[in-house]
Design a protein around this nucleic acid. Sequence first.
DNA 1: GGCGACTCTTGATATTTATCAATCACGTGA
DNA 2: TCACGTGATTGATAAATATCAAGAGTCGCC
Lengths: 232, 232
Amino acid sequence: MAVPDGPGIRELELFRDMTDEHFVTLMRGAYVQNFPPQIELITEGEPSDFLHIVLSGAVDLFAGWNGRETSMATVRPISTFILAATIRDAPYLMSARTLEKSRIALIPSEDVRAIFAADSAFARAIVAELAQCYRSVIKAQKDIKLRTSLERLANFLLRQQKRASGGAEFDLPFEKRRLASVLGMTPENLSRAFKGLQPYGIEVDGTRIRIRDQALLERFAKPSPLIDDHAS
Amino acid sequence: MAVPDGPGIRELELFRDMTDEHFVTLMRGAYVQNFPPQIELITEGEPSDFLHIVLSGAVDLFAGWNGRETSMATVRPISTFILAATIRDAPYLMSARTLEKSRIALIPSEDVRAIFAADSAFARAIVAELAQCYRSVIKAQKDIKLRTSLERLANFLLRQQKRASGGAEFDLPFEKRRLASVLGMTPENLSRAFKGLQPYGIEVDGTRIRIRDQALLERFAKPSPLIDDHAS
DNA sequence: GGCGACTCTTGATATTTATCAATCACGTGA
DNA sequence: TCACGTGATTGATAAATATCAAGAGTCGCC
């Protein structure tokens, strides 16, 4: 029930430039909660009552249809999720579950919409964030429509490598079966895809990845900033 | 070169609530142009100098990688495209080309960003539009990750039917090869997919579609508002 | 009317991906 | 320590999808 004034939130791009007064108002109705792993935080189809912010841990956004399920994205600290549903006051399009023990801030959607109308700096930040999210999904869409699973994996590894300081070795950020789902394939196929990348210098040991020949992998993966740059 | 004060733009949700003064300012730098079919309006990777608005005709948004190409969406009057790139002042993630003879309004991105900062009603409208766009892409992503090509086609037909007044017969809104690309398959496979839907009461005659048994098709397609409702 | 360019369709085949079943590896807790 | 559960891997097979190569229809145009 503590007000989430701890490290992080205020420094989020989304809240950085709004007035103190509005920030306090927003936080008054908010609360922070700790969740164990594998807890379903929201369910697709439900009304969006809260804007969620991951303070620590990790959250998986996923969606289902007709008995199938697919992982759409992983949210890591410190960022928000389901902003769009909150803004439009529309039902969630995705479900969310904790991957690890996580600390989540919840801000009533109503308050977000109210302050959004009153604080133009906040409004601007929301627009920037939404535009960013939109572009991320477009990139994911291009990834899946233009590339084979092997190419998707190769490019994922390059992106992950960059995120993990750029060295030749790094760890996968989550379980392989979730990676498979994110990349739009089955766990069995992911195993085979890793083998398929051996000729391009990929070594796998459990969750540890080693890129033996950076140039060779890049020649195969052909990463493009218009798909793989998460920043722009 | 005429100022685009004709029917439509001002009534767009995006511009409806902004002040007259700001609207006029925005339109001062804008211009309207007619394009023949198959003209490439923008190219992915280029800086986003203009917000585009389709006044009449139709525009295809597509993306390419490594010699492949895929159709991402079709923009029909009256709506904008590449709003996100304009807002973030980032390069286009998609290219755009006219499908038919089209009338397009172009508003300098700089002006959009300036007025956006000054007019809170405009800012709010942009947020609503962006959130809408984001949700649309999420739905498209779910469509492609959770469904087979046959299911995607079946649901596309149901969506198209609804858009075309809901009768048992309607026309495809564009060429089959583009439809194939939108649905993430090859033209050959689309042909076969249409045949595969015959047992579910689909009849195809050129661009004309007939749904002989609505309930049967829906039982197969299992449309979901969380994927197929374009409105919410 | 008939040529040419184009899309669409069809068939044969290859590739990619999924499914099913079994085994392996690893960590946890009794 | 050893069973147990879980995720990862592997192999065999099936299904989905793509590719290649014709052919058939369509449309505009001379």
